[in-house]
Simulated assay, not measured.
Amino acid sequence: MICPLCQNLLSKEKDPEYYECGTCKALVKRKELWPDSIYEKSRYLEHNNDVTDERYQKFTSPITHYILKNFSPLDKGLDFGSGTGPVISSMLEQHNYIVKKYDPYFANFPDLLEEKYDYIFACEVVEHFYNPRAEFLKLKSLLKPEGALILMTLLYNGDLDFKNWRYRMDPTHVFIYQKETFQFIKDSMDFKKLIIDGRLIVLE
């Protein structure tokens, strides 16, 4: 199997379900275990994403706070992978921010992927990418010159018990990142800056 990010041949098995890439350090689920679109959508429909839930608002707040601090209501944003409960968009719109929503299952408006944005955010989305190289290059192409790609995902590190880690146990998580993986994305795709602050990752 070839790494879908760096195109390296995957040979090191992390466990029976995942490879660990020797180049970009990503943890890549074996392709034969990738869920199909019907199962994937059914899993997302199980998520109880209520935009008025204060716990959900708090969980997603790293992205919301970053945008409120670094962008103005005059800037144009894209909620990529908005899902069934676009809580970040809802919070930003309360502050008069302009946010468009795209999701391949729940807001499938491909014309939005032809526009340019000051910021794009994706909360708990990038671990579902089957082709992360193509996805990140596409997202970068949608950014204006000073734009930012703002993400939330859990990063793996060697101190974690991978076998029992909850992120690894989600059957829809096919591509898991380490810090080195995002450094590879920054360098290979010519982003100017990388910020990693816990679950918050920003590529400028």
Rank of each mutant, 00 (worst) to 15 (best):
M152N: 09
F80R: 04
F184E: 01
I2E: 12
M152L: 03
G83I: 03
P132W: 01
G81H: 12
G77P: 07
M1D: 04
Y39T: 14
C21E: 06
Q57H: 11
K58C: 02
P132F: 04
E204G: 08
H65K: 15
K29R: 14
F59A: 12
C3W: 09
L68N: 10
D50I: 11
N8P: 01
G81Q: 06
S72W: 02
A134E: 10
I67N: 07
A148K: 15
G85Q: 02
Q57V: 10
T52A: 10
L68P: 02
Y156M: 07
A134D: 07
P104V: 07
M169F: 01
L142D: 08
L203I: 01
P132E: 01
K193M: 01
F184K: 05
A107S: 15
Q183C: 02
P62L: 02
Y19S: 07
G198R: 13
I38V: 15
L194P: 06
G81V: 05
K101V: 06
D36F: 09
P86R: 05
K76F: 14
V126F: 06
K25G: 00
D170R: 05
R199V: 02
K100Y: 15
G22K: 14
G158K: 14
C24N: 11
T181L: 00
L10G: 08
L5V: 09
L113C: 07
I2V: 13
L203F: 01
Y56L: 14
D197M: 06
S82L: 03
E180F: 00
T60A: 14
K144V: 02
P171C: 04
S89G: 15
L142E: 09
F80W: 12
G85A: 08
R55S: 13
Q178K: 15
P145I: 00
E204L: 01
S89T: 14
S82I: 03
N49Q: 13
T181A: 00
